[in-house]
Design a protein around this nucleic acid. Structure first.
Lengths: 197, 197
DNA sequence: CCTACCGATCGGTAGG
DNA sequence: CCTACCGATCGGTAGG
């Protein structure tokens, strides 16, 4: 099927973009990894940047969906418990990364290569996503559950720690993805929480 | 003086590499930022990759020197206090980043563009540097001051949080560099420390 | 530090 | 999905 082939191309491109960066990866590099000729790729994609956009756009949607799920779950099960909500938000973030490291890495690091319009669009979504962390930490600090002197800085440190996982995560590595998600969520709650958990 | 001009070139290149990435930055981009013609750059540098190497090599040395200083200071003033040592190591790391964001960003993110030999050399130094964080956390955990279930993961999270500062730090931003260094050091000690500090 | 220039590679098109 | 091909740009050299 055509959509399957298209996804295969996006997956191969994601991995190459992650390893070498978008602009250091040529269209022919992607084609070679698929065992086809460079120009043949254009039967499936309209441009190299369209391919980048497709990857980034889908990755963004996955992060957003994970945050929505974490929020819904926290609201239903532990309404008002900021620490539990933050832990779940972090866990979802990490699981989204480990589920597709290639796409997550590209979302985190390669969006700069997008043209002005798309770059602005993805930056707006990134900002909105980061705001969820920031406001959750700020709310928790206001109610005294958290204790960060600067919630904005705290959110940047937390997201920095979690996003870096996209850089070093190896599916065949020592720690399974779920364990990384649990331990990382625990660690980041410890940054902001008033009491050790 | 010639060395001054050379440093000016490295500074301009660092900033461009940080903003656009090494391979998306052309030799002519660097030249334009210096108000000279592309080929004129080769009066000062032997190749684009040599320029990258000079930046990465110097940045690596600064991180190493900061860690040495933190270690010497902790040994002299607070021998055996792992939390104080880790805080100082983190503070030094952040100050090294904010003192030259361009170079630090390139060290953190653009070393992939180096040729095989130099890439291996810088990776070895990165590993040795990361080991200082990892072993300090492992030692503190062994003596009961820290409580991380997985010191290796803890070190990666800590370094991820700190390195991300190179991505978003703005010298004209809301928080001064020293305040970021202090707050970040405090936050990361909180990740690993047994008691709230 | 400049102009003139080079081979290689880039993203992409034409036409099957 | 292929071969043949294109204009633009790349890093870098020659020769002042």
């Amino acid at each position: 099927m055509e959509t399957t082939r298209r996804r295969e191309i996006e997956d191969v491109a994601s991995d190459l973009f992650r390893e070498q960066g978008y602009s250091a990866t040529s269209v022919r590099d992607i084609a070679r990894a698929l065992d086809i000729q460079g120009p043949s790729l254009y039967a499936h994609v309209t441009s190299k940047e369209d391919l980048l956009w497709a990857i980034v756009d889908r990755a963004a949607s996955r992060f957003e969906a994970a945050a929505d799920a974490a929020e819904a779950w926290a609201a239903a099960q532990h309404a008002g418990d900021h620490a539990v909500h933050l832990a779940e938000l972090a866990r979802g973030h990490v699981r989204t990364i480990t589920a597709d490291v290639g796409a997550a890495s590209v979302f985190v690091a390669e969006w700069r290569a997008l043209g002005p319009g798309r770059r602005a669009a993805i930056l707006a979504r990134r900002d909105a996503y980061e705001r969820r962390f920031r406001e959750l930490i700020a709310d928790g600090t206001a109610t005294g559950v958290f204790r960060m002197a600067d919630p904005t800085l705290a959110a940047m440190l937390v997201l920095g720690a979690l996003n870096a996982i996209a850089t070093w995560y190896d599916p065949n590595g020592r720690l399974p993805a779920d364990r990384i998600a649990d331990l990382a969520a625990e660690a980041i709650v410890r940054i902001v929480a008033e009491e050790p958990t």
